[in-house]
Design a protein around this nucleic acid. Structure first.
Length: 723
DNA sequence: ATAGGGTTAG
């Protein structure tokens, strides 16, 4: 029986669009869409959302434009605006928002929240923010606190941005805070952390003390603020006060708790986040995903793995987080397995999931498989995705095919600072320091703001190219021109650069001028410079500090004993060796390869007949390594040694060029197998080296590890399809 | 049907 005027078939077809989009079958969804005589607004909105989610704004906008004005509604505008916001196009988002209001459509909570999240990314955010503020105020008082919170958070974010003068903006934020119809725990937290981020602990504390209700979350924000500014005394006092006075967190609503979880893990307070999670009366997938992301971003990958197993349900996002987490922590194989498992369980990977899989190819140096994924991306229509393209650039660069990295970069529909960073890093990794700096200058000309990662890359590039003057210039410009204060990584690279050029006095001065205590990376950089310049006294100072700071790192023992040996302090060598044996430091294939390399260094600079050196020989023999010097370059003191010759195995270190030359000297026997140590930080680097070698040596090289072969011939690599 | 959870660069 059919009621007249109602067409069940059309209705079902419209709903089917949603089903196809949910299972990522966009091309089916679109085909079906084209066949429906009059697609309804829900079907249109679904498709707009789906295309925005995969970064295809062109198609999203096409469907939006084809929707007659009489049919459009607020939700449909919201979906399109969200598309722009999520794809970092704040201006387009605002433009459409204005159009929407001119067309007489009434923005709602979602509209304001999503426009605001787009606004935070643009340069004149301050002005836009004020206009939105007016719009919210004029529209009456009917908006949820979440909209006011979003507005507040944009003010605060702009205030901490180097682009605008912060003093007035924090004042504006405070005015907004005061005039909000209602304030919830999030409003208080945002305002207080805003003050803390702008280094105004007094204002933050005053606000906290003026609170009527005593909410634990807000107190916690203040405590973290104190801790972050090293005011541990105040932090502790406040903590004690909170135990007796504040209201606990656990009875907040689901969405507030979810926001809190995220807030906590993003400030590195993962265990607090987990505590809230454990005590939440109701949890949903968002809560689980937030904690999983917490474990992954903290690098606590074992915990992440077991948490993932425990999860009652999973979404594409869950899989994506886990896959990229594994890939980033050097577990490329597991990441690939999981990627396949995801597909076999019926999830069609989104572009982010592809990014994770591509990252694991980069880590494994699996170029052929990476190319296959690239092809799949194109056929699925994901090739316009920013994150996938950025991952591709890195993958091609790490696998040594700079050409392909470059062509991805050049054909991308839009690029961001990550793309630039990836390209600059690709050049720097290939030893083209000067070109890397050229590209960096181009980036500045294109008005893309450099970030802390950009400067890490640029300082390394200067260091590799020996460009001290430029390095000094960029190092000082990062604070002066871009408001980025150098962190330990930046200082370490700067010290590395200075030491490579023998500027030890300046390096020491820089260490003394640092606003924090020097840690491992600083001493390591100094030590490395001392080794190349034979500055033994300073080197030993650095090594001793390193030894105090990171006694758990096997390499440190060897470095220190190595240096003592070099200047003949054999008693000290013996002491370190004893400590090493007591701690049970073992030399297994899973250990850092650099350790063995450093041991060999002892033979070169020290007295090979000395009992301690003999002991090292014995130590290595115990582990089944029959060490033999094959030849080294006098200028770099690089040594290459083979493993037991009957196994015909050769070990690789990551020093590409040295390695290539050394292999050239060494005359590989036919059919030799090269063993790649799994713990090498970047196997891609190794692949570059071997490729180079296969060209220099003019012979095929096969690299084998537990699961696959890579075949190198005349500078190219092919690998078996194991997945 | 729209939000909250993710991705890529050292």
């Amino acid at each position: 029986m059919i009621v007249s005027g109602f067409k069940p078939r059309d209705h079902i077809l419209n709903r089917l669009i949603d089903v196809y989009c949910k299972s990522s079958n966009f091309s089916y969804a679109h085909q079906l869409f084209d066949q429906i005589p009059k697609p309804d607004i829900v079907a249109r909105t679904t498709l707009i959302t789906a295309y925005s989610a995969i970064g295809n704004l062109t198609l999203a906008r096409k469907i939006f434009n084809e929707t007659p004005l009489s049919m459009r509604d607020t939700v449909c505008y919201n979906a399109m605006i969200t598309g722009y916001s999520r794809n970092n196009d704040g201006y387009a988002s605002i433009r459409l928002f204005c159009e929407m209001r001119q067309g007489g459509f009434r923005p709602n909570d979602f509209t304001y929240t999503t426009v605001l999240s787009g606004v935070a990314q643009i340069v004149d955010a301050e002005k836009q923010c004020q206009q939105l503020h007016c719009a919210v105020v004029k529209s009456g008082t009917g908006f949820a606190t979440s909209v006011w919170n979003a507005l507040l958070s944009v003010y605060v974010r702009c205030a901490s941005s180097p682009l605008v003068s912060s003093s007035s903006l924090m004042g504006e934020a405070r005015n907004l805070f005061n005039e909000m119809p209602e304030r919830d725990e999030l409003s208080w937290t945002t305002m207080i952390t805003g003050y803390i981020r702008n280094e105004d602990l007094h204002a933050a504390r005053e606000l906290l003390d003026g609170m009527d209700e005593r909410m634990e979350v807000v107190w916690n924000a203040m405590i973290s603020g104190y801790a972050h500014h090293n005011s541990f005394q105040e932090a502790l006092l406040l903590f004690r006060k909170m135990r007796t006075e504040a209201k606990p967190t656990v009875d907040f609503s689901l969405s507030v708790n979810n926001t809190l979880l995220t807030l906590y893990y993003k400030c590195g307070k993962l265990d607090e986040a987990r505590y809230i999670f454990n005590n939440m009366p109701v949890k949903d997938l968002v809560s689980w995903n937030a904690i999983l992301s917490g474990y992954v971003s903290a690098g606590r990958i074992q915990e992440a793995k077991s948490f993932f197993k425990e999860m009652p349900e999973r979404s594409i996002l869950t899989w994506t987080v886990m896959i990229s987490g594994l890939a980033q922590n050097g577990l490329g194989e597991e990441a690939m397995t999981l990627f396949n498992q995801m597909r076999s369980e019926g999830f069609e990977p989104c572009d982010y999931a592809f990014s994770g899989a591509i990252t694991s190819c980069a880590a494994l140096g699996a170029l052929e498989h990476g190319r296959q994924l690239h092809a799949q991306l194109i056929s699925l229509g994901f090739d316009s995705s920013l994150s996938a393209a950025n991952a591709l650039i890195t993958m091609y660069a790490r696998c040594g095919v700079f050409k392909d990295a470059n062509s991805v970069f050049l054909t991308m529909p839009c690029i961001d600072s990550v793309s630039w960073n990836a390209m600059i890093a690709a050049l720097a990794q290939h030893g083209h320091g000067v070109q890397a700096i050229d590209l960096f200058e181009q980036m500045l000309k294109a008005d893309i703001l450099p970030d802390r990662i950009t400067f890490l890359i640029i300082l390394s590039a200067c260091s590799h190219a020996g460009l001290v003057k430029e390095g000094r210039h960029y190092f000082s410009s990062m604070r002066v021109c871009y408001g980025i204060s150098p962190d330990e990584g930046h200082y370490a690279r700067m010290i590395d650069l200075l030491c490579r050029c023998g500027e030890f006095t300046e390096a020491k001065g820089l260490i003394e001028s640092m606003p924090f205590e020097p840690g491992g990376p600083i001493w390591e950089a100094l030590l490395a410079g001392c080794r190349t310049h034979g500055n033994m006294d300073l080197g030993i100072q650095a090594a001793e500090r390193l030894f105090e700071l990171v006694p758990q790192h096997d390499g440190t023992y060897i470095l220190l004993s190595n240096l003592y040996a070099a200047i003949g302090r054999w008693d000290d060598v013996a002491k370190v060796r004893k400590l090493m044996r007591d701690r049970g430091v073992k030399k297994e294939p899973g250990c850092s390869w650099i350790d063995v390399e450093n041991m060999v260094h002892v033979f070169l600079v020290g007295d090979t007949e000395h009992p301690e050196v003999q002991a090292v020989y014995k130590y290595l023999e115990q582990l089944g390594l029959e060490m033999r010097k094959l030849g080294y370059l006098p200028d770099t003191k690089f040594v290459l040694h083979d493993m037991e010759s009957e196994h015909k195995e050769y070990s690789l270190s990551t020093h590409s060029e040295k390695l290539a030359v050394a292999f050239g000297l060494m005359k590989l026997p036919l059919g030799a197998t090269i063993r790649v140590f799994k713990n090498l930080r970047s196997c891609g680097d190794c692949h570059t080296a071997i490729k180079f070698m296969s060209r220099v040596v003019g012979r095929d090289i096969i690299v084998r590890d537990a699961k696959r072969f890579h075949h190198f011939r005349n500078g190219e690599c092919s690998c078996g399809n194991y997945w």
